[in-house]
Write a protein that binds this DNA or RNA. Structure first.
Lengths: 411, 411
DNA sequence: CCGGTTAGTCGGTCGGATCAACGAATCGCG
DNA sequence: CGCGATTCGTTGATCCGACCGACTAACCGG
């Protein structure tokens, strides 16, 4: 019970921002004395800090604000993608403490080599935590794949050419040293799911309890937050929306069928619409980032062909998103990945299509927004997922007695 | 804390069936003494009963099983549909205490008249509760409509020709008498959503935490249970899957577009495939039940035309359901409404289509099953939703001291 | 009849939430 | 400047309720 009350107070501070003890008591319904005791314990654990003596304005004794103190714990998020790895460390306030990106041609390497690289990056993140005297509380790996979350196994990742790769076990085996010093859970999840979690935790729609996040890459991935919780599915295989067949007479798809959503709005489909085969944009030797930049440039200069292509992609987004919105009625749809880069050109036609196709009046009260995290959403989501452990049970963070300045904390 | 522990024990008994106090303690991690005290309180509240002295078989003193005792509380579920109203009272063990169906041509009546009839049926259900000395704990109305659950308003119900009907308020106004005696919450929700809840609570897939329920009627409705909770959406507008456009070149739909899912698998679409306009089955003067019976008869006698039609409907079910399964990765898809009647003829082609279209290996571990509740699922789900209040907080049921036999209970 | 084993209850203990009252800090006002 | 009013946070007393150990109850097999 103590635990759940500690969690209640910590969550409240995280969600609603800092406030006085009396304010917390009023909001949560707990007793003032109880809140005082809980806050004291959270301070001892380094999770919470006493802030400014509230600027006086009203009558009465001004309270001292209590605020989340990130500096004691860190969540680690790692993203494995087709051509890079990213690791990020976030503190409790979702501030970035460390971020590193490594180029890596994942599909051309055996999974073991990739796991070596992931382990290297992760231990660098852990060392950075140690250097800052921050307790690492968990690692979450985001992968564009069907992930069996419970087993910690990547079942199938066509873009990486992986099948049945035991990521959690592989990583744990490679990190025995750091893990012995800082025991913490390792998890794997689908990147689109984690991106949704990232937007929910710290994006432009932070705090929205019901949202759908669409990640635009070579394919399209979806993540759903419903009632404030990630919809993971029975096996963790949720969010596979790329092969929704919008038009049986459409363009051929890698899956063998025609007219899948991603043939219309995936990066390849967008490029096909925007440029002929002999156009420099279609040169596969260039990186995707560069080709994307070229497209944006052309759009900005008003190139007709490009604008038409983006309009069709936007409309395609609307057609597919309408299906999802009708199904789960989110409060917001967030466009991430490459959609975010080209957002201004996609939003108009997408919204028009939604207005026409969503059954509920006024698109069911659903907003369409661009991701503020962009390609970083998945790793942020992973780090936040790791931090959830602290919000669930603040008592996992040890008490550092009274000493505030402890350079080489032994706890 | 006491409350949450009471709820914990009651939920456990509901989900896992009756067992001894020691068994409950072992399962929940609570102390034996604590469980004894909690069970005693639940017995006082009439929610739980001491059963048979466990048939001895092993060594040691045999424990006395504790079981859910339904007989003290009742949840009321009311369904409003195109041509009938249904009310049902379920006790805590999901046993039917009362069930009544009234024919009513809803679209031809003003909503006020329909609400009068609903109120009449509901108060009959409440009187039945009184007669049995059962405490009614809530009313949930299931309606085939876009329902703003929070506001208790039907936003839009094309089949009923309703728009912005304040059902909760209307019903509360008409039930002031009974409600004064038994204060209880009234709620409205979408019928497909509640049907999913019904299957989850007491259907063939009872206890499955992640499932999708498809209701086949004139349209198609979906309900999603994810992580054991109903996915209601931000405004309660979830489950509108009937107008997923499977083929832009398909048959015309009432919504103005072509090739919507319900043109393929809705009852009208099925009948169109199975019979020409001059066929007796196509006679709109007959009730839907009768026409459905005729179709089933023909299928049973091996009529080629009918079997071909049902095969196409089954395949269409698979095409649409694949989209939903890829999106939310349920453990089971339950076919309800008219799909359940014709299930044997639909399942084969549906499963074949799913195997081809679901991305996750082995259909993501998703089973396809026929509803065991059929058309009753929505009202059962509503009654169960009302009973949730008791499982959430058993303390809402008053203590009836020691007296067991109280004909006219004043509590 | 007696040890062995498991079920349920009883009295004591203790963690921790609540309550009431008090000291602390600020404002408005005379 | 002093005083009441007001709100904040803490302190000591109280009490609820979960936990623990020990006991009795009820069955088994020999």
């Amino acid at each position: 019970m103590r635990r759940s009350n500690l969690a209640l107070v910590l969550r409240h501070l995280g969600a609603r921002g800092s406030r006085s003890r009396a304010g917390i008591a009023a909001d949560t319904g707990l007793n003032k004395a109880t809140v005082s005791s809980l806050v004291a314990e959270l301070v001892d654990r380094g999770l919470v800090r006493e802030g400014e003596p509230h600027r006086a304005g009203a009558v009465g004794r001004p309270g001292k604000d209590v605020a989340l103190d990130g500096r004691c714990v860190g969540g680690i998020g790692v993203e494995v993608n087709v051509d890079y790895l990213t690791a990020v460390v976030l503190d409790l306030t979702s501030t970035v403490l460390f971020e590193q990106r490594v180029a890596l041609d994942v599909p051309s390497l055996p999974p073991e080599d990739v796991l070596d690289a992931v382990a290297g990056l992760t231990s660098r993140a852990i060392r950075e935590c140690e250097r800052r005297d921050v307790l690492p509380v968990g690692v979450t790996v985001a992968i564009p794949a069907l992930v069996d979350v419970a087993a910690g196994v990547v079942a199938f990742a066509p873009n990486l050419r992986w099948r049945d790769v035991p990521v959690v076990r592989g990583l744990a085996d490679r990190l025995t040293g750091p893990l012995a010093e800082h025991p913490m859970p390792i998890r794997v999840a689908n990147d689109a799911n984690l991106a949704a979690l990232g937007e929910h935790a710290m994006g432009g729609v932070a705090g929205t309890a019901d949202l759908v996040h669409l990640t635009g890459g070579m394919g399209v991935g979806a993540g759903v937050i419903s009632g404030g919780r990630l919809l993971g599915g029975a096996e963790g295989f949720s969010g596979e929306v790329g092969h929704i067949q919008l038009d049986p007479a459409g363009h051929e798809c890698g899956c063998g069928r025609r007219g899948c959503w991603e043939t219309l709005v995936g990066m390849a489909g967008m490029l096909r619409l925007a440029a002929d085969a002999d156009d420099p944009v279609s040169d596969p030797a260039l990186g995707l980032d560069q080709r994307l930049d070229m497209i944006r440039c052309r759009a900005e200069t008003g190139d007709r062909r490009t604008l038409d292509a983006l309009e069709r992609v936007g409309a395609g987004l609307g057609v597919g998103a309408a299906i999802l919105i009708n199904f789960v009625n989110p409060r917001a749809v967030v466009l991430g990945g490459y959609f975010a880069c080209l957002g201004p050109y996609l939003l108009g036609p997408m919204r028009a299509e939604l207005r026409a196709r969503v059954i509920a009046p006024d698109i069911g009260g659903c907003r369409v927004e661009l991701s503020t995290l962009g390609f970083a959403a998945a790793s942020r989501g992973g780090a936040n997922a790791a931090l959830e452990a602290v919000f669930d049970d603040p008592a996992i963070v040890p008490i550092r007695s009274a000493a505030r300045v402890s350079a080489t904390g032994s706890g």
